[in-house]
Structure formats: structure tokens, C-alpha cells
């Protein structure tokens, strides 16, 4: 009987959790006139107009493309630089290692609002304003430390004897690292890529500050729409639904690894 009560509670919570998302889905399938005209729990006049508009109007869909470009660049930079560093932290003691690790961590914790203004000046001065690479580099501020942190956790789980054996067998460090070590922690690499992707994807303030038109992310386009008069709720809801899709896809593919990532408490 007790078990049942728990499960009922959990199911109710999941219901509450899904309700706001369902409501947005509901709105996204209706036209603005229909939304403002009548209040219904299920869309009776479901239409894909909003989605079609977003996917055909370049001022909308270019936002998704821009976001995906800088997020991908950022994920690659983060992974490539963080992999060797995480190996160093998990295997070696060296001068200032702990302080270095702490300093990296503070950047994960630092308020983006503090960095937005100097970033704007920095990237203006080097002529990188409104480019994808600027946003990708700026997001490294919190994603590289995050990547080091998560990867270090996974690498510490691999016994050092593996490294020693490989070196005795005459493997050079780069060859060992790429052909033996990285395949061993590929789950960790997957989880890390996932979190880098997500955190760059969800960030709004820096991305908005560093872009004007050419690299404007979808998040900034959505907030612009909110402040505009004559708000089109159906369109906004559809745009919102589409921003959830990448997360949903990735979560499904990494559901088993994710639990482990969370278990390490390194999010």
C-alpha cells in the first residue's frame, strides 16, 4: 500500500511538470486569433501554421542555424582543449594544480552579467562582433571549466595501470591518449559534449550582447518578439517548442549516461 502512495505522488508531480509544456504545445498548434478568442483545453482547430511560418521565414529559422553553429563550435573547442587538461588533473600532481582547478571552477560560477560588458568591448575591439566565433569563444568561459570538471570525474574512474601498461608496451602519449584512453571514456565524452551543447544552447545574455543580426541566436529573436507590441502567442509558443527539440533528442540518446553524469554531481 505504501509503495502505491509514493507512486501516486510521483505521477501527480510528473503531471504538474508536464502541464506547462503541454500548454505551450497546445498554444503552438493554434493561431493567435484562436488563442485570444476562446479558452480550450485541447486544440480543436489544430494547425501547423506557426511552425510553417518559422521554418520558412528566414528571420526566424536563421536564429536556429546561428545558434546551432556557435553551439557546435563551442562544443568542439571545449572538448578538444578540456580532454588533455582533464587528463592532467586526474593523473598528475603539479605546481598549483588545486588552485588552477579552483580558478577554473570560479568561472563556471561567475555571473555572466559581469562579463557581458567587457566581452562587448573586447570583441568590438578585435572586430569579431556579430560573428559566431565570438559567441563560441565567449561561452568557453563557463563551458571549458565545466568540461574539465566532468571529464576529470570520468577519467579518475579509469585505473592508472592501464596507462602504465600502455607506456610499457611502447605507446607514445598522443597515440595512447587517442587510440586507447578516449575510447575508454567515450561515455564521459558524450555526457560532456551534451552538457556543453546544452549550456551554450540555453545561454541568453552573452549571446544576445555579442550579436546584432548576422549571428543572432534564436533566444534573442524570441525575447525581441516578447517585447514587441501585438505579441503573437502562437508563433512564440511554436518557436519555444522548437528550442526544446534538440534537448529532447539528446536526452533520449544519452539517458543512461546522464544518470552517471548527475551522479558525479558535476553539472
Amino acid at each position: 500500500m505504501k509503495v502505491k502512495k509514493k507512486t501516486i505522488g510521483l505521477v501527480i508531480y510528473f503531471g504538474l511538470l508536464l502541464m506547462p509544456i503541454y500548454w505551450m504545445l497546445n498554444m503552438s498548434l493554434r493561431t493567435n486569433a484562436s488563442i485570444l478568442g476562446s479558452f480550450v483545453l485541447f486544440p480543436t482547430d489544430a494547425t501547423f501554421t506557426n511552425y510553417i511560418k518559422i521554418l520558412t521565414d528566414s528571420s526566424w529559422y536563421s536564429g536556429y542555424i546561428n545558434s546551432i553553429i556557435y553551439v557546435s563550435i563551442n562544443t568542439i573547442i571545449s572538448l578538444v582543449t578540456a580532454l588533455p587538461a582533464a587528463y592532467a588533473f586526474s593523473r598528475y600532481r603539479f605546481l598549483g594544480d588545486k588552485h588552477m582547478f579552483f580558478w577554473l571552477l570560479t568561472n563556471r560560477m561567475a555571473p555572466a552579467a559581469v562579463f557581458a560588458l567587457p566581452f562587448f568591448q573586447l570583441y568590438s575591439s578585435v572586430g569579431l562582433m556579430d560573428t559566431h566565433i565570438a559567441v563560441a569563444l565567449a561561452h568557453c568561459l563557463f563551458n571549458v571549466p565545466l568540461a574539465v570538471w566532468i571529464l576529470e570525474g570520468f577519467m579518475s574512474g579509469i585505473p592508472k595501470e592501464i596507462d602504465e601498461t600502455a607506456f610499457i608496451d611502447g605507446y607514445s602519449f598522443p597515440r595512447f591518449f587517442i587510440t586507447i584512453f578516449i575510447p575508454l571514456i567515450r561515455a564521459g565524452v558524450g555526457v560532456t559534449a551534451f552538457f556543453c551543447f546544452m549550456f551554450s544552447w540555453v545561454e541568453l545574455l552573452i549571446a544576445r550582447t555579442l550579436t546584432v543580426t548576422n549571428a543572432k541566436p534564436i533566444a534573442a529573436i524570441m525575447t525581441r518578439t516578447i517585447s514587441a507590441t501585438g505579441l503573437d502567442y502562437g508563433l512564440l509558443a511554436a518557436a519555444g517548442m522548437l528550442t526544446i527539440v534538440p534537448g529532447m533528442l539528446v536526452i533520449w540518446f544519452t539517458r543512461n549516461h546522464m544518470a552517471k553524469g548527475f551522479a558525479l554531481g558535476r553539472v
Binding site: Q121, L122, S124, S125, V126, G127, L128
Partner: peptide, 9 residues
């Protein structure tokens, strides 16, 4: 692209 330090004031 040149890195000037003027913006740092």
C-alpha cells in the same frame, strides 16, 4: 584583426 589594449582603459 589586431588586439589593441585601448578598450581596456
Amino acid at each position: 584583426m589586431t588586439l589593441t589594449l585601448e578598450w581596456m582603459e
